[in-house]
Amino acid sequence: MESSKVDMFIMSNNKYFESHQVAGIREQLLGMDESKWPILQTQQFKDPTTSLIVSLFAGNLGIDRFMIGDTGLGIGKLLTCGGFGLWAIIDWFMIMGATRERNFEKLQLAIA
């Protein structure tokens, strides 16, 4: 794929991925077929900051986990009322990383 397109994608989406993943993503996209560009453009990634805000306010109900696509963990969190408050606190520190990981997995699925 053209490097200008790849750089544009990286610039506008790098906040959705872990910093160490960005260089690898760039390499992958450069070697990707041009026909996948429309699929890539339509991908919607979850914002880690939004997940953190949701986790702070609705973490006890598991909404943050539902939001990033971890339905099983979300149900577990909902039924235990945020793991008796404890899991909700732990997720304040983990949800941003988890969101970036899910975004990376989503991207891998899209360009596979």
Binding site: S19, H20, L86, I89, W92, F93
Partner: peptide
């Protein structure tokens, strides 16, 4: 950078959990 942030979070989280 990402490793340092996660490692530091483990200590911060223990402080928050201690207070909570």
């Amino acid at each position: 950078e990402h490793e340092a942030e996660k490692a530091s979070n483990s200590y911060l989280m223990s402080l928050v959990a201690l207070i909570a």
